Simulated assay, not measured.
Amino acid sequence: TQLLTIVNGVGTLISFRNINYWLGFRANRGFLRTSRFRPPNHALTVQRPFPLSHGTTTLGFIFQGGVIAAADTRASAGGLVACPAVHKITPIHSHLVVTSSGSGADCMLWERILIREIRLYELRHKRRLSIRASAKLLSFMLHPFKGTDVSDPLSPNSGPQVIYVCSDGARLQGDIISVGSGSPYAYGVLDGGLSWGLSKEEAISLAREAVFRATHRDAYSGNNVDLFHIDAQGWIQRPREDLKEEYYRELERRSKRRREKKKRDTIESS
């Protein structure tokens, strides 16, 4: 495995095992372009005799106190809960974590490659690769596998930036990003409750509720919730929490609302 930079500025050759592709720079247009690339035969997707569905719920958002990243812990394979306690949030370094959604083996592979390349860059240049550059590096690595299902989406989150990198090399940046089969339900909670001025505890509570709502409706997500808070000092992992605790809290909130409504009705009737 090597990372070779050509000094004359013609381009950069990145080699991962038997995967080679060129990143060329067109001076008069000022953008990077990749040459045609065909993955080796063993990397092509093999059609399964039956569909094997899997899903997840991961999210990240920005608020005044930094970034919150959250994910459930269920690994599913069709109708089977393969593992109830996987780690879908992986720290890359002190100010960068990634949340993974899709094929677990592929996501683990690309996370390890990303950790290695960022560390090699730091050793060579005596400075850490920026978050945006890390996302671009991951995007370049994934692009040759577009349409092969070799890897599924990864979402780097750190500092004031939340960036989504898809398996086809697409790279998107936003203030709220949720990925996985439970993401439509998580977006519903985040869009209704997120604001820049949230406190740290309010942001954590919102992320936990978003994952809980998603797991309540999405059969492929569930079990526990992992939460990371990233600020200028680095990331802090919250203790893993069983989602049934959030369920009991929701029951208590509903009971409290009913009591308050009954009390108001009693006062109005009197």
Rank of each mutant, 00 (worst) to 15 (best):
S183P: 13
Y185P: 06
S167D: 08
D218S: 02
S178I: 09
S205D: 14
K244W: 06
S221A: 05
E260P: 03
L227R: 00
F228W: 07
G182K: 14
L172E: 08
I204L: 06
H229V: 05
N157H: 14
S167L: 05
S195Y: 11
L138E: 07
I204W: 00
L206N: 01
K262P: 00
S255F: 09
L198E: 06
G182V: 02
F140S: 03
I176M: 14
G147A: 07
E252A: 10
F212H: 13
P156I: 07
V225T: 03
L190K: 12
K256A: 13
L138R: 00
Q237E: 12
S183H: 14
A207S: 04
R128N: 08
L206H: 06
G193K: 10
W235E: 03
L198Q: 02
A232I: 00
S151Q: 05
K262S: 10
H216N: 10
L172H: 11
A133V: 01
Y185L: 13
K136G: 01
Y247H: 15
Y187L: 15
A135M: 05
K126D: 08
P153A: 14
I236M: 09
V150Q: 13
Y185D: 11
P144L: 07
S139K: 03
S178W: 03
A133S: 12
H125R: 03
R253T: 08
Q237S: 11
E209A: 06
E250F: 12
G182N: 14
N223F: 01
K136A: 09
V150A: 12
D152E: 11
E252M: 11
W235A: 04
A232Y: 02
P184M: 07
I163K: 07
A210V: 08
I236G: 02
F228E: 02
R240E: 05
S205W: 01
P184I: 10
L172Q: 05
R127A: 03
T215G: 01
K244V: 01
S269W: 02
R264A: 12
G197S: 11
L206K: 08
R124K: 15
S255R: 12
S221Y: 04
H216R: 09
L123F: 12
K146E: 10
L227S: 00
S221N: 01
K146I: 01
R128S: 14
I236R: 14
D242W: 00
K261L: 13
G188F: 05
A186G: 09
R253D: 14
E260T: 04
P239Q: 04
G222F: 00
V179M: 15
R132Q: 06
L190R: 12
E268I: 11
E241L: 00
K261E: 13
V225H: 04
V189I: 15
F145V: 07
Y185I: 06
K200E: 15
P156G: 02
R217G: 00
S155C: 14
R240G: 03
K244P: 01
